[in-house]
Design a protein around this nucleic acid. Structure first.
Length: 232
DNA sequence: ATGGTTGATGTTCAA
């Protein structure tokens, strides 16, 4: 099983790049976030032409999550369902499906904007609710991969300069505690399993200040896997 | 430089 996660920041704008990636990356499952599409506008045929089934949970201008799989796509679920109170109601931030015997959960975690803002408080609540949803849906003994744009850097090693993030979201103890809670539930940060001590390896660079060219990055897109997958 | 740039249902919002 080979998987990838990608915040595409508009699938309409990024589709040629996504098609290019699928052409060489040899992934079985691709989880995408920020498609910024309605369900009606999702380009299912473009993925089918490359051999991938797709499911999309979108709302239009913002958010939107999708899974493309060439190893089957079953048991689709979107959102937290009726039994849980969504701190970001109406926003398309979770889609789940079984692909090749693995339960995939694809997340676009709220950004949080400013520490202690209403958006930040609801980001923390969203992560707590997501774990409640996960616990209701899955056992830690299942093969489950909870992947996506977490908008949290799990540790200082995951940002280019921890001093530069003092007072910022993505690195606060409360946000990191939500990642720890998922680990206590039974998930493992797959990247850290493979690269336990490597720094300067990131998944996101802000495009507003030439951060990519200065390698001012953060590792905020995560692949969290249960024990049966972590052992594999 | 409370900056910078990208994308969308854009003359504003979210990131």
């Amino acid at each position: 099983m080979r998987l990838a996660t990608w915040n595409v920041n508009s699938l309409k704008a990024r589709l040629p790049r996504v098609e290019e990636f699928l052409g060489y990356a040899d992934v079985d499952v691709l989880c995408m976030q920020e498609t910024k599409l309605t369900d009606e506008a999702f380009p299912h045929l473009a993925f089918a032409a490359l051999g991938y089934e797709t499911v999309h949970h979108g709302q239009g201008r913002w958010n939107g999550v999708a899974i493309a799989s060439r190893v089957g796509l079953d048991d689709v679920a979107v959102g937290f369902g009726d039994d849980l109170d969504d701190p970001y109601p109406g926003e398309a931030r979770l889609v789940a499906a079984t692909c090749g015997g693995v339960s995939f959960v694809n997340l676009y975690v709220p950004n949080g904007r400013e520490v202690d803002s209403d958006f930040y408080v609801r980001k923390l609540a969203w992560l707590t609710t997501m774990q409640e949803w996960l616990d209701a849906k899955h056992s830690r003994a299942d093969s489950v991969a909870v992947v996506g744009d977490y908008n949290v850097a799990p540790a200082d090693i995951d940002v280019w300069d921890s001093a530069a993030f003092i007072g910022s979201t993505h690195v606060t103890p409360a946000e990191r505690e939500r990642i720890r809670a998922l680990e206590e539930w039974g998930l493992t940060d797959a990247f850290r399993l493979v690269f336990p001590d490597d720094d300067r390896l990131y998944t996101f660079w802000d495009y507003r200040s030439g951060d990519f060219h200065k390698h001012h990055g953060m590792r905020i897109d995560l692949v969290m896997v249960s024990a049966p997958l972590a052992r594999a």
